[in-house]
Amino acid sequence: MDVHFRPLIDPAHPQPRVAAQLGVDGSPGGGPPREAHVGSETTPAASGGRPPRPSADGAIPEESGNGMRLASVVLNVFDLQEAVSFYRELLGLEVSADTSTAALLVSADGSQLYLRSLSGHASHETGGIGVHCVLWTAPSPAELRHCEQVLKDRHAHTDTQEEADGFVWVQGRDPSGVTVVVTHPGPDQVARTRIISRIYAL
């Protein structure tokens, strides 16, 4: 299931900066990535959603909404202020509340990213159980280019590729070494039809 995270609208940009998906960004299958040039327009493809659940008597509700969505992500980091600065610049989120050890970054629709500061000696096991990384979706090629440039300016960019399903993947690392990925178009525009092989290398 793809879940989305719609962040704050930047006053300088009429569109939201990014939206996000959590975890695996695809469906069955696999294929090698291709080199990509960020900024190429892609024709959106139709993607179906999960059908609404029937009630106890078998009736389908007339207004079922869009189903479950991601509300919050909690991310442990080493340096809180450095992490706040990174995610604000990269994704356009804003700080709603903070303490000396945590910060809450929010989007225009109320989605939330919690950053929690841990000791600089805390371990970060990428091969362990739990959420592996968060995949964000930029609303346009221009915003994807912005994210790629922010990562490059911070010497945090690791890869840019075009996947077989027709979306571009920009990858980097945040100040704590956590993988961060931004894609365009999102799964609501171009359906993910296979499990992309690169999730095993994050």
Rank of each mutant, 00 (worst) to 15 (best):
T158E: 15
H4C: 14
L135A: 13
P187C: 14
P139W: 05
H13W: 04
N76T: 11
I129R: 07
D79G: 05
A122M: 08
P16C: 01
S47W: 02
D174T: 15
A12P: 07
A103Y: 04
E94R: 12
D2R: 14
T99A: 13
L113P: 00
I129V: 15
P28G: 05
Q189N: 03
V73A: 14
V178M: 03
A191K: 13
R192T: 13
D10M: 00
H37V: 09
D98M: 10
S55N: 15
G166Y: 03
G110Y: 09
D25H: 15
R198L: 05
P11C: 07
I199N: 12
M68G: 09
C133G: 12
L118V: 03
P44Q: 05
D153W: 03
L118W: 13
V74H: 10
V190R: 11
Q15K: 09
G177M: 01
M68E: 13
T43D: 07
P54C: 04
V170C: 03
G130P: 09
T126G: 06
R145H: 05
P16D: 02
I196Y: 14
H13S: 09
Q81W: 11
V150G: 00
L8I: 01
G49E: 05
S55F: 09
F86W: 11
H121F: 14
L151M: 07
A103W: 04
V38T: 13
A59W: 15
Q112P: 06
P139H: 08
